[in-house]
């Protein structure tokens, strides 16, 4: 593999964009690795948080956005809590996730699908509803059978109602999603 030519950084404005959108000063990161050290998901990542922070500092957009780690992030904010330089690292990860979606670089479809299924249920009924989310997720991905082992116990204990509790204002909630979709379309044009 050829070396990365740092003098020919592919997207010089990328660091600025990330700083702007996340509201964080990424130049203060001195690569101590504390975010990686405390990250509960680190063992499953293909690129560590501190490495992603470094990629942002160098303006290496593709390295920062094209990875599964962004999707495996649990949003637990341990990185933020322990950063010695007051960087809200979880916010940076979240920002990169949003950017990756906009750029069509999502590297973990199942996780994104679960989120979409969850939000679809909310859009439809106004609240989340476990069986609805699971059914939607399994239809989207053909996955999710691994969760079936706990379904009998949950059903038996009456923890999974079959019918959603639709709220009266569900149209109002649906309109939030509709307007959101519209603003996104405008943004893309």
């Amino acid at each position: 593999m050829a070396s990365i030519r740092l003098d020919q950084v592919r997207d010089a404005g990328f660091l600025h964009e990330v700083e702007e959108e996340s509201g964080q000063n990424i130049s203060t990161c001195y690569q101590c690795g504390n975010c990686t050290a405390g990250c509960p998901g680190a063992g499953f990542y293909d690129r560590q948080v501190s490495q992603i922070m470094r990629a942002v500092q160098l303006g290496l957009k593709d390295e920062a956005l094209r990875n599964r780690s962004l999707w495996l992030c649990l949003s637990c904010s341990t990185c933020t809590a322990r950063c010695p330089n007051n960087i809200d690292v979880a916010r940076v990860m979240e920002t990169l996730r949003h950017m990756a979606r906009r750029e069509g670089l999502v590297q973990d479809r199942p996780i994104e699908s679960f989120w979409k299924s969850f939000l679809d249920t909310v859009k439809l009924t106004g609240r989340s509803f476990e069986i609805g989310v699971m059914a939607d997720y399994m239809m989207r991905t053909g996955r999710g059978w691994g969760n079936m082992d706990m379904a009998p116990a949950a059903l038996l204990k009456g923890k999974l109602p079959f019918l959603p509790s639709c709220i009266r204002g569900r149209d109002e909630v649906a309109r939030i999603f509709k307007r959101y979709a519209e603003t996104k379309k405008e943004g893309q044009q």
Partner: peptide, 30 residues
């Protein structure tokens, strides 16, 4: 790498151990 946390563990013999959660930033791994 900076140590993120020290987490005690209770060993089988009852004594305390201390897990240091860190990253080797040169290796790029936790």
């Amino acid at each position: 790498g900076r140590v993120s946390a020290i987490q005690p563990i209770r060993r089988a013999d009852g004594s305390l151990g201390y897990i240091l959660r860190a990253a080797d930033t040169l290796l790029g791994e936790p």
